[in-house]
Design a binder for these strands. Structure first.
Lengths: 335, 335
DNA sequence: TTGAAAGCGCTAACAT
DNA sequence: ATGTTAGCGCTTTCAA
């Protein structure tokens, strides 16, 4: 015996109405006599009828599914965003197709195409950088797109972020106020606008505000991993830096670990600020002072924005800037 | 101007062939003359035609999409599984619809139903416990299901796990060999079979093997959070325990933190073993000895198993047990 | 308030 | 090797 599916047609027959009426009942169309509705509902229940969302999608051209392109779910930063996205999606009756891209330009494009082929109603994109190619795909697709936690220099699509420049400036300013004259800037790839433009700009502004000179030797580009952090410490200390701002918690943790191994006292001899305030910053000794980003909210707001775009609602702003904070913990001195 | 979609029909017309031929080309059917194929491919390229996966799904009754029910993506443990799942899914040309359930019985059922409504070809389920209700839904759905990292007492569906009982027994045995006579067992809800059955059983077996008496006062049920861990420490120390096995890293970290705050020396005065060997166990001081579970692989193998089930391939085994390990680090003594 | 009927874009026999 | 023709299960005018 095969999987004999029950269709809207079966329900219609059993309830002695037309399939149009069943459709109306299923979709909550008010133009149905209560008695009829009741009858149909009973049959639906009895037959255990479940509407086929694929057929529905084909007929209505809406899938109530959105595509989510993410570099790596197993990275806490993105996982937090994803959770916010899914919660709001669920709230608005959408499901998410989650696709990992590893931040790989080519994968991003191919995955975007399969999502579009699946007729998703919208796309949430997280990535380190927006290549021209992917931007091109976005613009010729007619499907609404929102960036979550990703910077797009020219704002063609929606996006939700914090003000990375201002946040970085704040962090650096704190370090400068504490008397540090050589403050290191340690980030991921500088070609990513979020690092090379936003954050670095904030760094420079803070420096000039405190009359400190910009020195390339204090800028480090690294991968986001614990190990890279520990390995970076030699060079960091050689640079003469007495403080560092790091754009990733795991990396910062590695640096802290390396510093301690070198017998450098944190925060007495070296101050450290990281960026994501994840659990990692809480469990290290000392705990690491960090910028705070509302990760969950960035995801949630991005999804909310996307629902508006999908409904062609009027939206005040396609670019949302959420507030950030700076939580002082054990890796910076109290003053 | 509206989103005027290009259909297989447009391509057929432009290429002077029937839509069937276009379909064959698109699906790589060998029964097409090379010249024809080339012509069709050119038109597809020129028109920028992209097959509509929804229509395809309706006609073929396959969506190349699988549903993934996960308690919480922002939990590292599950996120790692999810990454393994997605990678293998991608490898086999599937996409995943990711749905968070919070381990909530009711949400799990409702989410399962919407996934089935969307005609997913298969389901990967992660959860703390398999309720009778969800098991019922599984069995009457005809859609293949595989559990990843979840225990199902009666094995109706596929599943991929490690041998939690043996793993726990190993961990406890190590603690016993080190001379600990009062070894605490700290887990999540004991009604979850993975804790109350598998792991606790392993705990008991190890005890009896070392002639230690089972004492309920050493068993603690807790939530998986850092805070709960720190708060548990008073009771833990009052129990007289000199060692503990913990089923979650974050919880273990909280316990370690609490112990250190109480001036208890780890591992000299108290030994600790945790279960997931996540990054958290590496960044604490001391690093925490842990069981090692191949999280990514559990996800990957679960997805691989699901592909077999979806293809109705003969599968040797519906229940896969993956190897585990025990990595001794700083929270247990060297002997 | 309800029904009839025409698609939605594609696959999959069945012909040729 | 290619074309013809039914559907897949539902939404959505348009009539009644």
């Amino acid at each position: 015996m095969e999987k004999q599916t029950i269709t809207i047609y079966d329900v219609a027959r059993e309830a002695n109405v037309s399939m149009a009426t069943v459709s109306r009942v299923v979709n909550g169309n008010p133009n149905v006599k209560p008695a009829t509705r009741k009858k149909v509902l009973e049959v639906i229940d009895r037959l255990d009828y479940r509407p086929n969302a694929v057929a529905r999608g084909l007929a209505s051209k809406k899938t109530t599914t959105v595509g989510v392109i993410i570099p790596d779910v197993s990275n806490m930063f993105f996982a937090s965003l994803a959770r916010g996205i899914d919660d709001v999606a669920t709230m608005y009756k959408y499901n998410i197709i989650l696709a990992n891209s590893d931040g790989n330009d080519q994968k991003e494009v191919s995955v975007l195409n399969t999502l579009l082929a699946k007729q998703v109603d919208g796309i949430i994109f997280m990535g380190h950088r927006i290549t021209d190619e992917i931007r091109g795909e976005f613009s010729r697709s007619k499907t609404p797109v929102v960036l979550a936690g990703s910077i797009d220099p020219d704002q063609q699509v929606g996006s939700v972020n914090i003000d990375y420049e201002a946040a970085t400036k704040d962090a650096i300013s704190l370090l400068a106020r504490h008397g540090n004259e050589k403050i290191s800037f340690i980030s991921g790839a500088l070609i990513d606008p979020i690092n090379g433009k936003e954050r670095l700009e904030g760094y420079k502004k803070a420096l000039s505000e405190y009359n400190l000179t910009y020195n390339e030797g204090l800028i480090f580009e690294s991968n986001y991993s614990f190990k890279e952090g520990t390995q970076l410490v030699d060079r960091l200390l050689n640079s003469g830096a007495t403080a560092a701002f790091v754009t990733d918690d795991e990396l910062a943790l590695g640096i802290l670990d390396g510093l301690l191994d070198h017998g450098v006292k944190v925060p007495e001899e070296f101050e450290l600020i990281t960026s994501n305030n994840s659990l990692l910053t809480e469990v290290s000794r000392p705990k690491i002072t960090s910028l705070t980003q509302p990760l969950y909210d960035i995801g949630a707001v991005a999804m909310r924005l996307l629902t508006k775009l999908m409904n062609k609602e009027e939206t005040e702003e396609k670019t949302v800037i959420l507030p950030y904070g700076l939580e002082e913990k054990g890796s910076t001195r109290k003053q």
